[in-house]
Amino acid sequence: MRLFWRYLLLLFVLAISIGPFLWQLSTSLKGAGEDVYLPDFVPDDPTLANYAGVADVVPVWTFALNSLLVAVVNVVCNCLGAAMAGYALARLKFRGRRLAGLVFAAAILVPFETILISLFLVMRSLGLTNTLTGVVLPGAIAALNVLLLRNAFLALPGEVEEAAIIDGANAWQRFVRIALPSVRGTLVVVALFSFMFSWDDFLWPLIVLSDPDKYTLTIGLAYLQGTFFQNQRLVAAGTIIAVAPLILLFLLLQKHFFRGVGEGALKG
């Protein structure tokens, strides 16, 4: 009996958590002839017309491609750049190591919203406003990822690299062949969260991009809402396009998502 109540409660929360997504999906599949205001979750005559339709009013596939491009570059830069820095901080001894570590620690404490305006000035002086490069750069190597990977490298036992050192392998060879493969788990977490942050980011692309052709999905959708607010079916189709890839990724790799939260990869 107590189990019954537990499941009833679970189903109630389930409805609240994914009901809104399902309602959006349902709206996106409803044809022009169906009243979208009626509280009916099952479309009378499901159609994909809205997915084609949204591409007629805004270049939604260009937005998606831009988002994908930005996210992939972000993942590669973060995995490689943060791992390199993390490796140096954890496994190499040199003067100035503490100072370098402090720089990354300080960067974590800077809330992005507070540097929004002056970061825009930096991008403008580099001539990178309204470019996808300008979107990627500020988060290309996140300080948080550097420290996550530093901790992962620190946790490796010292002997791991000794044999390689005796064999005369240099630091780069040891990094690529021994250290990097040993922190695969953390790299997956970093990759996943870099992808998600980049794909979901809104405030920075909104500031730095001005040309609709360069828009990423998030600001493209906000733009769509502003221009074609009346047609809920199209907005719904656009949101499903934006959220479906992430949900898929999440379902495939959920274990790593939960681990990432545990390791503090996601700041909420």
Binding site: A85, A100, T114, I115, A171
Partner: peptide, 24 residues
């Protein structure tokens, strides 16, 4: 060598976090 490893990370963080923060 360590500084070569750190270069990309430090460059990004200094240019796009620390400097804008101080400039702000």
């Amino acid at each position: 060598t360590p500084w070569l490893f750190l270069l990309p990370g430090l460059a990004v963080v200094l240019m796009f976090s620390i400097f804008p923060f101080l400039n702000m």
